Simulated scan of single mutants.
Amino acid sequence: MRIWGKVFGFIIGFMFGRFFGAFLGLWLGHAYDKRQGLASLMRKGSERQAIFFNATFAVMGHMAKASGRVTENDIRIATMLMDQMKLTGQSRIDAQEAFRHGRQADFDLTKELEQFRHVTQGRAELSQMFLEIQIQTALSDGELHANEKQILSIIANKLGMASQLDALLARWQAEFSHHQSPQGNKMPLTDAYVMLGLSESSSDQEIKRAYRKLMNEHHPDKLVAKGLPEEMMALAKTKAQDIQAAYECIKTSRGMR
């Protein structure tokens, strides 16, 4: 809580205008403290977004090297993600630089994750979004290599999400299968259940509850407010659309309202 603006405002106001001046100074000091507090929050928000952005592409670069060397396909996947985020100009240069940094032999994954965890503490949705982006990267070539799984396990452990990793992997594998399916936009019912973390034996109420929970966790505006870089809003929107598609698929199959 900021109080020094109020303190100095009260003292100076009292010196020049006794009690009336003191109260006027107190009010002006309160306005100053509030403005400074908002400015501080904005700076912290910007810092959090910058660290999220850089860590995402640095760890992505580290993931790309997990198989032993960075392939043309790894670079293509990173480029596709930058295209999906519509990164241009300095933002794209920063992403490419972070990606190259993550590929270096001396890249310290633990240190990167500790810094990320520090600025996202208490924001579980951001940690989950970060992990999901790395899962998406690992699965983009259609398979999960042992070294990639190991890196994902390290990330999940550092972010306190070890118990959720297998479920998230299953959801993303179902989502990847859906996007690669020759059926186009038609989602297989089995994939729809997996994407919501459910099974065909789940009740209608459980399905609605899981859908609302996932939509709340992946709401783009909410994630940006918590510190997700605005450039990554497109990723959150895609995820929310897939959750919606899975829910509609299950609703239709069950005749739910």
Rank of each mutant, 00 (worst) to 15 (best):
L26S: 08
G5Y: 05
G17M: 09
Q104W: 08
S181T: 08
S91T: 02
Y211T: 09
D221C: 10
R254K: 13
T79L: 06
F14D: 03
T110Y: 05
A246S: 13
T56I: 02
A50C: 03
H178V: 09
G102S: 03
G255F: 00
A146S: 15
R254Q: 08
N216M: 12
M215D: 04
R212I: 08
K239T: 15
A39G: 12
A192R: 02
F99Y: 15
M195A: 10
K44G: 09
M15E: 09
M1H: 13
Q244C: 03
T252G: 05
A167L: 10
I250D: 03
E143D: 09
G197P: 06
I12D: 06
K111M: 13
S199W: 00
I154Y: 07
N73Y: 12
N216K: 11
F8W: 14
A245W: 00
M195S: 05
K86C: 08
Q36W: 12
M82H: 07
V7R: 11
I12Q: 01
R43P: 10
M233H: 10
S202N: 10
Q134K: 07
L24R: 04
L113K: 03
R18G: 04
Q241F: 11
N185E: 14
L169E: 05
D204Q: 10
S253A: 15
R2M: 14
V224G: 06
V59N: 00
S46L: 14
T88Q: 08
L87P: 00
K222Y: 11
I135W: 01
P188S: 02
H219N: 15
D94I: 02
F19K: 12
G227A: 02
F130L: 06
L165C: 02
R257P: 02
R92H: 07
Q121H: 14
